[in-house]
């Protein structure tokens, strides 16, 4: 009995400690994409921003579609994603903005080294997709309304193919993030579209490799928006705006350019140039 009582007291003390909220420093919540977080970019640039401003950044990494939804509900202060059409819709609907373009990288078509659809070395990404469809080679799709998913669907459209016809057979929508999609493709020797950043930081490659890259249609632009504080009074507008201003400032752009994996630059800042295709 004394043992139990003493332990209960200890437990109570522990819970008191556990219940206390973490010291509330100034912070903002950024809804962003798995590609930016998992590539390690945020791990590199956010400490620099926090150091400069004293504002901590909490990143919730989701697909672009989900991240925009989080912004729509007002659950983030800033949205930092990569699907221009969806972002412009978000702004047009009055959920946030204005949109600022920040940086780009590119998508790559990944596939097994055996390359059953024989697409290695092609420059034309739509031609590569046509060969994959013709060969009925396994293709893993994100299927999650992410920026990469949107880009993939655009490419199929440009290739004149409706992959949905192959749904459940060679075309496999998994409804998950980039990482799980890569794991899935690695496990079944399938093709897929991936952003270069996530690919470079991905470890479980098995026989996967880059087969097609460098097509202008594989361009991947990232944009950032403040969530509309008029719609959601809880939004930390001042701090959020500082983050956006910093991202497009020379300091922020330099920080992005400086992030490399194995000497390879992952993201290319372009805030000071006109946006391609604009």
């Amino acid at each position: 009995m004394p043992i139990l009582r003493r332990t209960l007291l200890l437990l109570a003390a522990f819970l008191a400690w556990a219940g206390t909220a973490t010291a509330q420093e100034r912070s903002i919540t950024v809804a962003s994409t798995t590609s930016t977080e998992q590539s390690g970019l945020f791990g590199h640039i956010l400490p620099l921003f926090t150091q400069a401003t004293g504002i901590a950044v909490r990143v919730v990494a989701l697909g672009t579609g989900q991240a925009l939804d989080v912004g729509r509900r007002g659950d983030a202060d800033v949205v930092f994603v990569h699907d221009r059409a969806a972002e412009e819709r978000f702004v047009a609907e009055g959920f946030g903005g204005p949109r600022r373009h920040v940086m780009y990288n590119d998508f790559v078509i990944i596939g097994p080294a055996a390359d059953p659809a024989r697409i290695a070395g092609l420059r034309d990404s739509t031609a590569a997709l046509q060969r994959i469809a013709a060969a009925r080679a396994l293709f893993v799709s994100r299927g999650d309304r992410s920026g990469t998913h949107a880009a993939e669907l655009r490419l199929w459209q440009q290739a004149g193919i409706d992959p949905v016809a192959g749904r459940g057979q060679w075309y496999r929508e998994i409804g998950q993030g980039m990482g799980p999609a890569l794991n899935s493709a690695a496990a079944q020797d399938a093709y897929l579209l991936a952003d270069r950043g996530t690919w470079l930081s991905f470890r479980n490659r098995q026989t996967l490799k880059i087969l097609v890259e460098g097509d202008a249609r594989l361009f991947n632009q990232y944009g950032v928006m403040l969530v509309n504080p008029q719609r959601h009074p809880g939004v930390k507008a001042a701090e959020g705006q500082r983050f956006i201003d910093w991202l497009v400032s020379p300091a922020g752009q330099a920080a992005i350019a400086a992030y490399k994996i194995d000497g390879e630059q992952l993201f290319f800042p372009n805030a000071d140039k006109p946006e391609p295709g604009a």
Binding site: T34, A186, N204
Partner: peptide, 9 residues
């Protein structure tokens, strides 16, 4: 879950 999705099994 994160490390799994990063492929660092």
């Amino acid at each position: 879950a994160l490390e799994t999705s990063k492929g660092d099994l």
